[in-house]
């Protein structure tokens, strides 16, 4: 069973602080980690390999060179190999360009039975790379997998979470699945795993090495473009409503609607 797990390096917290003077993110002291949702993907990849024997788990990420640290973390958590796709040409990629780049690297690796992604990242929050990857690779896709029931004879049977329950879905392999956090409890690294990860090689592939068309990766290959980045209006302090009870309740509902919460 050869598994490829796609990971992203993200800031270690969604609770990113904003400097009120400059309106910029405070990055100091926020260490980079494996996107939490991806840790479930990695754990499931490692468990799948352990369950079905042989083969290997390859962790793959696209990002700056400093992402090598999280690739080593992936090795300490059970990945056999790690591939980091890093090139100036990849900068500014939207989800399609990211999926395209990953797809080309996956094609370069060749043999794989299953590709596992987290359901979304905690920084971008789009959840689009997994499904886009499947379409670019032209292989089946199942989202929100909460359990891998069985893998046999080139087919996989999974449970997939939907709003009112779960569906049991069967697919041929290779396939891409995205997993939800209900699927497992990721292991912690072991001392021996950490030691191993320190000396294990992390392959770093550039655009040329994957053989991608540079006009299709990074910002150049992105269909979407960010034209403006700004800070949402913040509620400075507690707002305690005044007036008649009913108008207070109305105020509250308005505020919640403004923030899209109800």
């Amino acid at each position: 069973m050869n598994v490829i797990v796609c990971l992203k390096q993200v800031p270690g917290t969604t609770d990113v602080k904003v400097n009120p003077q400059t309106n910029t993110l405070i990055r100091q002291g926020v260490e980079n980690v494996i996107n939490p949702f991806d840790t479930y993907a990695l754990e499931e990849g490692v468990r799948t390999k352990e369950r079905y024997g042989e083969g290997k788990v390859t962790a793959m990420s696209m990002g700056p060179l400093q992402a090598e640290a999280v690739m080593r973390e992936a090795i300490s958590l059970g990945a056999d190999e790690a591939v980091l796709l890093s090139d100036k040409a990849f900068a500014g990629a939207d989800t399609w360009a990211t999926a395209y780049t990953l797809a080309q690297a996956i094609n370069k690796i060749g043999q794989h039975d299953i590709i596992i992604c987290g359901r979304q990242t905690i920084d971008g929050d789009t959840g689009q790379v997994g499904p886009e990857l499947a379409e670019i690779l032209e292989i089946p896709f199942v989202a929100y997998v909460s359990q891998i029931e069985e893998i046999a004879d080139g087919r996989i049977r999974v449970q997939r979470m939907v709003e009112e329950g779960h569906e049991v879905i069967e697919s041929s392999l290779p396939a891409v699945i995205t997993v939800v956090k209900e699927i497992n409890v990721p292991r912690l690294p072991s001392l021996r795993g950490i030691t191993r990860s320190k000396s294990a090689p992390v392959a770093i592939w550039s655009a040329r090495e994957i053989g991608v068309d540079e006009s299709r990766v990074g910002l150049a290959g992105s269909f979407t473009k960010v034209i403006k980045v700004f800070f949402p209006q913040r509620v400075s302090q507690s707002e305690v409503f005044q007036g008649e009870m009913e108008s207070q309740v109305d105020c509250l509902i308005d505020r919640l609607k403004d923030t899209g919460l109800t």
């Binding site: 939207d94 929050d125 789009t126 499904p131 886009e132 379409e135 670019i136 896709f141 979407t224």
Partner: peptide, 22 residues
């Protein structure tokens, strides 16, 4: 929704067009 987030990206990927989530 869980349906939209699962299948709309696939539509966009095949049509090779941009998609903005959420």
């Amino acid at each position: 929704t869980s349906l939209g987030r699962a299948f709309i990206p696939r539509v966009a990927a095949v049509l090779k067009t941009g998609l903005t989530a959420d």
